[in-house]
Design a protein around this nucleic acid. Structure first.
Lengths: 242, 242
DNA sequence: CGAAACGTTGATATCCTTCAACATGAGTGG
DNA sequence: CCACTCATGTTGAAGGATATCAACGTTTCG
């Protein structure tokens, strides 16, 4: 099923920069495919050579690294509108993997075509760089959590961050939103053991910070949760541009 | 003291991409200043609006975030040839600070001029994006350390990574190189306490991994140190392009 | 129904932090 | 030149946060 960029619901959602008709036509032109993949699929494998670039059209994904002995570190989560594989495409081989957290839909942007498009439309290069910078700032945030926050603060910060990102995408209703992470994902993102993650979540739940029902999360006290998280005042800009 | 891009020692060091005479002239044209700052100077302050972009011409720097209560996380170290403040320039305000670790020399690239230059020379935009991707992969590496490596592994991984980066820049002689980090810097980069950092360093030293003499470090057993670090086989590309 | 993935809980071990004290060296003013 | 301070580094002891181990519960799904 091809989805035209013209009727793209992401673009229509007014979160995104307005592009000229000409720009839109150019983007449509290089978009080669609209892919669907199931939860758990490997979108980019570590070591992949010359991977393509994707726009995450629907669903969640995450980026991770593995140590030689199997320990996993999740670097960042990706939501609709995020660009996948930009850095990987810059190098000879992907230094990390990207896995689908839920069923996902991807728009494929072949990297060679994208580079040539930049020649014609430098403004687009800026937008792509902007998305890259945004993605780095998510990693910065998470590194600060893992390095300098306690377990409870980390969990709270992760939930608050995802909540805010989902909110911008209109995926939150009455402080409730889809939350597809398992406790193992949370543990691997926050540098905690599975057991300790479980106990920390339970503690925050008991404190009345949030509730979880089959795959969705409700924040019952966003303000306090944010304070527990030692959340920054400044925030990563939330408006993707492409 | 103005340094011409034509006689730039960085560019001459053959680590960098060859640029056409035309490109070089353009870069020279937008370079507004050659700055010197002492160790400890704040190159970019958290919250700075519309900061400029810099090329680190000489010296070391580091990028960091602070939690509201003062805890500090160092995100990455920067060596000559690295671009400073690229992400900050993309947003309205810097989400992190950059501090000079040693005395530094900076080439100032006013961001507006840089953006307009991209219109004329899209290849340059790619190079800048490449540097941005490279910088992100350093953060990825460090996040993996902090999240999933033990204290000894973290320290070893940091030293090995800096050693390799310095080596590419020809700053290593007989496995010895300038190492300006204090133990506090190491602790803040690796998410460890100062005391534990000290004891971990002492342990690795006792194991014969390295020696330190007034500001420089000698790796006495690089191979083993790399194994202790659980270092990745794949590595971040080491060749800056601008 | 059975298996596999995911979640929960208690007990124990350990890594790392915190606290406290002291050592060393560089810089500064008296 | 000495006393002083400040930044940095070192070391031991004690406590706490988090990991590991083990067992069991719950849900999902073929």
């Amino acid at each position: 099923m091809q989805v035209s960029c013209h009727e793209c619901k992401l673009r229509a959602s007014n979160l995104f920069k307005r592009v000229t008709a000409e720009e839109l036509a150019s983007i449509q032109q290089i978009k080669s495919e609209h892919l669907k993949m199931p939860a758990g699929a490997e979108i980019i494998r570590i070591g992949d050579e010359a991977p393509e670039i994707y726009t995450l059209y629907a669903g969640w994904a995450f980026r991770y690294k593995m140590l030689p002995d199997g320990r996993r570190q999740i670097l960042a989560f990706m939501l609709p509108g995020d660009l996948l594989g930009l850095q990987a495409a810059m190098f000879d081989a992907a230094l990390f993997g990207i896995e689908a957290l839920t069923d996902v839909q991807l728009c494929v942007l072949p990297r060679k075509k994208l580079w040539t498009l930049f020649d014609k439309m430098p403004g687009l290069a800026f937008d792509v760089a902007w998305l890259g910078a945004r993605s780095e700032s998510f990693v910065d945030e998470n590194l600060t959590s893992v390095g300098r926050r306690t377990a409870a603060e980390r969990v709270a910060a992760l939930i608050v961050t995802l909540y805010k990102r989902a909110k911008v995408l209109d995926m939150v209703e009455n402080d409730m939103f889809a939350f597809p992470l398992t406790q193992q994902h949370i543990a691997d993102a926050l540098g905690l053991s599975l057991v300790h993650t479980n106990k920390t979540l339970a503690r925050l739940k008991r404190m009345g910070m949030f509730k979880q029902h089959n795959g969705s999360m409700t924040l019952t006290n966003p303000r306090v949760l944010e304070r527990v998280a030692q959340h920054f005042d400044d925030e990563v800009p939330m408006r993707p541009l492409i």
